[in-house]
Design a protein around this nucleic acid. Structure first.
Length: 552
RNA sequence: GUGCCCGUAGCUCAAUGGAUAGAGCAUCAGCCUUCUAAGCUGAGGGUUACUGGUUCGAGUCCAGUCGGGCGCACCA
């Protein structure tokens, strides 16, 4: 609706002859008695123009020209707000638009395709996915879904490294468990992976090779088997939550020389060195971040000659730029919070437009079962596993619970609540609204022969004028704006909140307005309104990755 | 010690710098011979951790204090 209001207001301001350097903001007042939309532009510009805000607001109003049957009332209120009230006809015409657009309602048709990349999960294959990773996975998936509705061609990417020290330790951990399988008594170091899955992998190898590998000190076969088994299990877990990736980017790619014989890592070092940000001491190569005001320099190449994770990370982001993504979204957990500023700084030095990069950091998840909190750590092997959670509460509840709170809030996942098949569980509230509409439409077909596809009768919607109907209609009209907001702040939680209100408005409408029992035209109009509501619920559910049951 | 996140109703959480801070759960009182009561209506419940500052206007921005979480490796 911003596009609807802004040009008209801009014109009016120009006609009043005042300074318009301030940006015009259209907002929805918290209370409907202040209108459907409102702007504070008179308040913002009054001082610099030495005018009384209320008088200025009235002057602006005098020059506002909206198309007929759109804005029913405009008034000055409070200290100088301009409040707009939409006409019922306008609201109901928007509902016709929902029915017309169907699955595309809320989507933006791009003139030029913009490319976006969303990187999420990106767990190295050292163990099964934890609940914490799951939150990031669902968050990333939803952000990617939102981007797709806004005209982006989205690449969903998983970045991983199967070469580093952690993978060595993984291989060693499996080898030790294998030796146990062969009857040896071993001492298991604290630094190694202790989870039961390591034993399973070791047994798997033992079943295949018996004791043939006992003498070999080569851990390659242990590492490789572990990687294969673990990666398969990670993908399977993600699949259960409908989280998918188009591209798995192995860090190894960055170690391959180009035509000039240089690896990406070498190119990064050279470019940073040219700009004076590389130093060599203590046998290592450093990114001189102290020059940027940080406390410590950061190692790029270890004294062993291997790159630290930071160097390929920079190279990886260069690859994102070289693949021409106009928006680059990185989703990761709060434990990686210190990782990205260095990468951004390096990219800035190298001349990349870091404004394209958006970081979405999700805070941790604590799960409570019977009031007890569980904590996770992959290495100690006491991780709370994502698979167990899905087994427990199902995919819909898992997804919805992960994103029904803002990503910045430390999520408290109440397992008992998510398990409940009752109204306490927010998942059911949303799905129930959908199922109820489906049931209603089935009944309507049976009783009145209602045909949802009769678009020639959509104009009947304009007969609807009760507060409950208009409130519901307005919410449907608001859907496209809500998606845009959700994208701007990278926050699918907005969508959950919106759908909750939509469901609530529908239930109220259903309660107050007889539908099948109403007079024929009103009946049709109300069925169309229900149909439009179901459409928006479905579109929203699709973005969140929650199923839309036809009956419950 | 330091960087980031959080502190809002009994509990879990909302609130692009706007008007009287809102939902759900829990508590209490109503609504099914009528399209799904997994629903609806109403009531109670607040010094937005604290102290200053900026602003016409602060839960929101700035400074500081207190409390909780996560980081601060030549691990990723």
């Amino acid at each position: 609706m911003h596009d609807f209001f802004i040009p008209v207001i801009e014109t009016a301001i120009r006609l009043t002859g005042i300074d318009t350097s301030k940006q015009i903001i259209i907002e929805q007042p918290s209370d409907k008695k202040f209108g459907d939309f409102s702007t504070n532009i008179a308040l913002l510009t009054a001082k610099e123009n030495r005018k009384n805000p209320r008088e200025l607001a009235q002057e602006i109003i005098n020059h506002l020209i909206f198309p007929p049957d759109t804005v029913a009332k405009i008034e000055v209120a409070g200290p100088g707000f301009i409040n707009f009230y939409l006409s019922p006809v306008f609201i109901m015409k928007s509902v016709e638009q929902v029915l017309h657009d169907g699955d595309s309602y809320g989507k933006v048709n791009p003139g030029i395709t913009k490319k976006a990349i969303v990187e999420y999960v990106s767990a190295n294959p050292t163990g099964p996915l934890t609940i914490g990773r799951g939150r990031g996975g669902v968050l990333g998936d939803c952000i990617a879904n939102i981007l797709e509705t806004q005209g982006y061609e989205v690449t969903r990417e998983y970045y991983f490294n199967d070469a580093g020290r952690q993978m060595q330790i993984l291989g060693e951990s499996v080898r030790l468990r294998y030796l146990e399988c062969c009857g040896q008594t071993i001492e298991f170091p604290d630094t190694h992976y202790k989870g039961d899955y390591i034993r399973d992998i070791a047994e798997n190898i033992y079943n295949k090779y018996s004791a043939a590998l006992v003498e070999s000190s080569d851990i390659q076969i242990f590492k490789n088997s572990a990687e294969e088994i673990i990666f398969t299990s990670i993908k399977k877990t993600l699949d259960r939550l409908s989280i998918r990736h188009d591209s798995f980017f192995n860090e190894h790619t960055l170690y391959k020389p180009d035509e000039a014989g240089l690896t990406t890592n070498q190119r990064v070092i050279d470019a940073l060195r040219k700009n004076g940000f590389i130093g060599e001491y203590d046998g290592a190569t450093w990114f001189l971040t102290t020059k940027l005001g940080q406390e410590k320099d950061k190692v790029l190449i270890k004294s062993s000659g291997e790159p630290s994770y930071r160097l390929p990370d920079i190279g990886y982001h260069i690859s994102k730029f070289e693949r021409n993504f106009s928006m680059i979204v990185n989703v990761f957990g709060a434990d990686h919070i210190d990782e990205y500023p260095d990468v951004i700084e390096a990219l800035k030095i190298l001349g990349y437009d870091t404004g394209r990069i958006k970081i979405a950091i999700n805070q941790f998840v604590t799960t409570t079962v019977d009031g007890q909190t569980l904590k996770m750590s992959t290495r100690k092997g006491n991780a709370d596993l994502l698979d167990d959670l899905i087994d427990d509460v199902g995919a819909d509840a898992t997804r919805l619970f992960f994103i029904m709170r803002s990503k910045d809030s430390h999520l408290n996942f109440d397992v008992e609540l998510a398990k409940k098949q009752s109204k306490d569980n927010p998942v059911f509230y949303l799905q129930y609204a959908h199922a109820r509409i489906c049931s209603l439409l089935r009944m309507a077909l049976q009783e009145t022969g209602f045909d949802p596809s009769l678009s020639s009768e959509h104009h009947l919607l304009q007969l609807l004028t009760t507060p409950a109907e208009l409130q519901l209609g307005f919410a449907l009209l608001d859907y496209p704006d809500m998606i845009k907001t959700s994208l701007r702040i990278l926050e699918p939680q907005k969508m959950v909140e919106y759908l909750h209100s939509l469901a609530e408005y529908f239930h109220r409408f259903y309660q107050e307005c007889p539908i099948i029992k109403a007079e024929a035209d009103i009946c049709k109009a109300r069925l169309f309104l229900s149909l439009a509501t179901r459409q928006v619920l479905r579109n929203g559910f699709r973005i969140l990755g929650v199923s839309a049951p036809e009956s419950m």
